[in-house]
Design a protein around this nucleic acid. Structure first.
Lengths: 99, 99
DNA sequence: CCTTCGTTTCGTAATTTTACGAAATACGAA
DNA sequence: TTCGTATTTCGTAAAATTACGAAACGAAGG
């Protein structure tokens, strides 16, 4: 039972998931910042980026759901950082994909 | 005039565009095939992939619009291949992005 | 306890994506 | 010219994405 036979490979689905997370310029921008300097707070981003804070929050949520980014509670702020493990996985998947 | 001041960089927008093209497993799958073996026909893909031909055609159109794939008319078929130039650009963008 | 700060969730609306089958198109062959 | 093959476009519908402001939330400070 339960033998649905998935057509796409695990790698293909993972890559599509990461690609989806990066399919909006603001999310690429956020990852650029996090990968270059370090972690940062939602409020810091909100001051730079030309979108509403609530919209930014949604994008951060998507990045968290994809696994590329994680948020550490640091009251009263929340510090966002790359999830190094998943970042490395995505890097590897794209590298393999393109070669 | 026309000085709208774009917030995101050209690279960020390009990467987001390529990422969007790869944000669905079937499109990753198609690119996998094209990058591994060679070119192929829509009909060949249609026999493998578990979606309607018209839906497949839409996905191919998106890949064409992104620039990653190109189609050569070869009556009565259409042969799809990677666009090597844009493929290399995407590869480079992702490489830079992840490092 | 009440307020403030930083952030997210809710409610909503417009747009885009994904999917299908039917119809249209393009072209070579009969 | 009519037929058959290969593929795309059209029409449509359901679901997801993107965006905003208002409201809610949790923790620290007065």
């Amino acid at each position: 039972m339960e033998e649905v036979k998935e057509f796409y490979s695990v790698e293909e689905k993972k890559l599509a998931r990461y690609a989806k997370a990066l399919s909006h310029p603001v999310r690429v921008y956020i990852c650029d910042i996090l990968s270059k300097q370090a972690c940062c707070y939602s409020g810091d981003l909100a001051e730079e980026v030309p979108i509403a804070r609530s919209t930014l929050s949604q994008h951060l949520k998507e990045l968290k759901n994809s696994g590329l980014v994680q948020g550490e509670i640091n009251p009263p702020k929340i510090k966002y950082c790359l999830n190094k493990e998943n970042w490395a996985e995505a890097q590897q998947l794209f590298k393999e994909f393109f070669k």
